[in-house]
């Protein structure tokens, strides 16, 4: 249950790092999701880590060591693309599609990079922070606006 170690990995070495971890016994990919840090681009991070708008977060589990590990990959806004982990863990397919669908992160090498939860003609990526939640103005009739 307890929190796991969180490590930053650069985008270029992301795939290689995960491949190495898989060799080391992290055989189960528990989770993959992305976060949009638009409101906190200047957040405090440990030294040497590049701050980017997006982060892809991967949780790996080692069944033999009973350990978990979390990787955070900064992904720039201008080119939101990372390598797909699909060749290592085929089970990541749905999760990467979800991250694409809701946050617009592209995964290079993903075999089926389509939307998964939203309809295919949906515009935009709703979990991005600049995506406004739709609202319907409510008119209260017979009440005069005072300001």
């Amino acid at each position: 249950m307890s929190d796991l170690d969180s490590t930053f990995v650069e985008r270029d070495s992301y795939f290689q790092t995960v491949a190495g971890l898989k060799e080391d016994g992290y055989n189960l990919l528990s989770d993959l999701c992305a976060v949009d840090y638009l409101d906190h681009v200047d957040r405090a991070l440990s030294e040497g880590v590049i701050r980017e708008r997006f982060e892809v977060v991967v949780s790996l589990t080692s069944m033999s060591m009973k350990k978990r590990l979390r990787l955070r990959v900064p992904v720039p806004e201008s080119d939101p693309e990372v390598d797909s982990l699909f060749p290592l863990y085929p089970g990541v397919e749905a999760m990467e599609r979800e991250a694409y669908d809701l946050l617009g992160i592209r995964f290079k090498g993903h075999p089926d990079p389509t939307r998964i939860l939203l309809p295919q003609d949906w515009e935009g990526h709703p979990l991005r922070k600049d995506y406004s939640v739709g609202r319907i103005p409510v008119q209260f009739k017979e009440v005069k606006r005072t300001r």
């Binding site: 638009l38 806004e77 201008s78 949906w122 515009e123 935009g124 990526h125 709703p126 600049d130 995506y131 406004s132 739709g134 609202r135 319907i136 103005p137």
Partner: peptide
């Protein structure tokens, strides 16, 4: 490049529009 995307529909806030 901060853009706002709203789901379709006639009820958009003018600024967002």
């Amino acid at each position: 490049m901060t853009t706002i995307h709203t789901p379709g529909g006639p009820h958009k806030h003018p600024d967002e529009e």
